[in-house]
């Protein structure tokens, strides 16, 4: 186990030497890179990284360039998880045989994947990694849509969002299904740590990433990643949208230890109505038409119910 990097406050955090570089091709204002920076800057350990196909991968490995200052691999859409799990298994084998070239260094294994790559396409691969107990962290960059291929719905797309394969129109309010609860599914593998994070809460993020990296065994992180292009908001507003998401409790922040002990890690002082979160994004614009307005109340009720259930689970410790 490596020494945990000391990050008392934002000033101290800002002395980090980034291992993720600019002139990548992510959209201006993309939250993927804000999350990646917060994750990588949370540690000084050596990192073995992988990405599944998706915006992050496509935009940071544009031949002949790489934007990664640590070992990084891409194979396919579905297997960011197993790419890193394979590297980790190799590392453990070499360690056992005493053949590591630098046995004293602390090395961590982290995979990034989009929601499409994680909730849908690479689902069983991640499940396998969690079940086999690899010492690795899997992070979903959850922008609730297949952004890189033009905004198709995924099983992370929330109800009422207009996506290119579930468009809103005269006869439809957009996506019909509610978002899959991926954190619960992953926690059900009884892994030591799973959590939901958001880029605006950098301190909560750093704490969870540091905990996750230092725990032994598989860790699952769902990171909310507002997408200026597909959620349809101005690039300058990425952090404002993130604040609305966490403060309306559309994206509650919590962690689950050993598959059962749930802790809520952020309680907004001023709860924002879900309506404000929806109104700030073009993908929900149609919900404000008379015929779909009932959806807004349903949204609020659903968010309230989820929050209530999280609080009950926190109390019950089961």
């Amino acid at each position: 186990m490596g020494e945990v990097k000391k990050i008392k406050n934002l000033k101290e955090f800002s002395t980090s030497a980034d291992r993720f570089e600019g002139a990548n091709l992510l959209c201006p204002g993309c939250a993927h890179s804000i999350i990646v920076r917060e994750v990588l800057n949370a540690t000084n350990d050596d990192l073995i990284l992988a990405s599944s196909t998706g915006c992050l991968e496509v935009c940071t490995a544009v031949y002949p360039y790489t934007s990664w200052d640590a070992s990084w691999i891409h194979i396919g859409f579905e297997n960011g998880s197993t790419a890193v799990a394979g590297a980790e298994a190799m590392y453990q084998a070499l360690k056992k045989k005493g053949r590591l070239k630098q046995p004293d260094r602390s090395t961590k294994f982290v995979a990034f994947g989009g929601d499409g790559a994680s909730y849908d396409i690479g689902f069983q691969w991640i499940s396998g990694c969690m079940e086999r107990g690899h010492d690795m962290m899997y992070i979903v960059l959850d922008n609730e849509v297949y952004a890189n291929t033009g905004g198709q719905r995924s099983s992370a797309t929330p109800i009422g969002a207009s996506a290119t394969t579930s468009p809103a129109g005269r006869k439809s309010y957009g996506e019909k299904k509610n978002k899959k609860d991926m954190v619960a599914i992953m926690a059900a593998h009884n892994i030591p740590y799973s959590a939901q994070v958001a880029p605006n809460k950098w301190k909560d993020m750093v704490k969870k990433i540091q905990h996750g990296l230092n725990v032994e065994g598989p860790v699952f992180i769902n990171a909310m990643s507002p997408c200026t292009t597909e959620w349809k908001f101005d690039p300058k507003d990425t952090m404002m949208i993130s604040d609305l998401a966490t403060d309306s409790l559309v994206f509650p922040l919590y962690e689950i230890i050993d598959g059962h002990e749930l802790n809520i890690t952020y309680r907004p002082k001023h709860k924002v109505p879900v309506e404000e979160y929806l109104a700030a994004q073009g993908r929900f614009k149609h919900l404000f038409k008379a015929e779909y307005k009932h959806m807004i109340k349903e949204w609020q009720d659903r968010v309230d119910a989820t929050w209530e259930s999280l609080q009950r689970r926190e109390e019950a410790r089961v």
Partner: peptide, 18 residues
Amino acid sequence: CQFCWVYCPDISIISRDK
């Protein structure tokens, strides 16, 4: 305060010695 540093997506805010 370093808010600009932490939230810049493009590693373009240069902060040194806090």
